[in-house]
Design a protein around this nucleic acid. Structure first.
Lengths: 92, 92, 92, 92
DNA sequence: AACGTTGAAATAGTTC
DNA sequence: GAACTATTTCAACGTT
């Protein structure tokens, strides 16, 4: 439990300011994204459909990633890849 | 409505890729934020409280932005603010 | 524009309190709904599916209402209903 | 998983109808609120400002609810609150 | 009547 | 797995 007014207050402050800075950057990016959607809409595209497409592409990517990892398992079993890295071993 | 396979397809693709790039950056930032929280937690801070503080600080900022005069007039009428102070006028 | 501190303040206050009361009731209803979902979930139902069903039923109802009005148009054309009310005439 | 056409169907139906009834009541309240805003507008008030005031009053209420001690400890450490006042202890 | 803005609702993710 | 938070999506409202 941090003591009040001491060094802990400084550390707490530091954490908070780091987070706030990152969130500010995130907020800016969200605005940028909105602007791109607005621009697309201004060109006559239906933003709802674009959102759908992006969602589908994301999902496809995720599936690809899964396949990828399954592929790696098979390849590893075949000696076509080095044994699984330490992070995977640690996770088990 | 955009014709399929023509220039419009290119434009659509461009929009989508711009959005995806921005969202990827956003995702990275979200991860960074998570890491800071994890680090703070590792130092013994309560992340839930930190989130609350950040929310409060944000809200305080929003309050500062509420500088519209009509709002003040209404709030004064409701007794939520003191009577209009003679800011510019010296003694009234 | 309402004068500050006078009768207008009272009227403003009255409006605000009426709205706040209604919103409170609305909030309670929203909670009730959440509880019903929780209860359904506790009985083994998938709330996501229930939401979907409710959405579909709502949509079907809306479609029915539209058909209804089209029906009325036809019936009116056939003299089976009185002419459209004055609000429709005014809207034109 | 509930069997189709049996008692479970009845229970599902019951849940759905309860929710739909509550949502209907909620819808009515939303309309009532809209009417009050319309009436206020007709009296010359700016509904946008009224909405803002209601938001502020709600927020003030939420602030009152933030009475958790750990939060206060953290905020004190950040200088967002004065040092702990001797509330219960008479003279310190 | 469409546009942007805002608020609510739903879903996804995270933590305990 | 249950609750909470956060993000995202959807709908409504006022506005031009």
């Amino acid at each position: 439990m941090p003591d009040v007014g001491g060094i802990a207050g400084d550390r707490l402050k530091s954490f908070i300011e780091r987070i706030e800075r990152l969130e500010e950057e995130k907020r800016v990016l969200a605005e940028d994204i909105k602007e791109v959607y607005a621009e697309a809409k201004g060109t006559g595209f239906d933003t709802k459909i674009i959102r759908q497409i992006i969602r589908i592409r994301k999902r496809d990517q995720d599936e690809l990633d899964e396949e990828e990892s399954l592929l790696k398992v098979y390849m590893r079993a075949l000696g076509m890849l080095p044994e699984a890295g330490p992070q995977a071993a640690a996770a088990e």
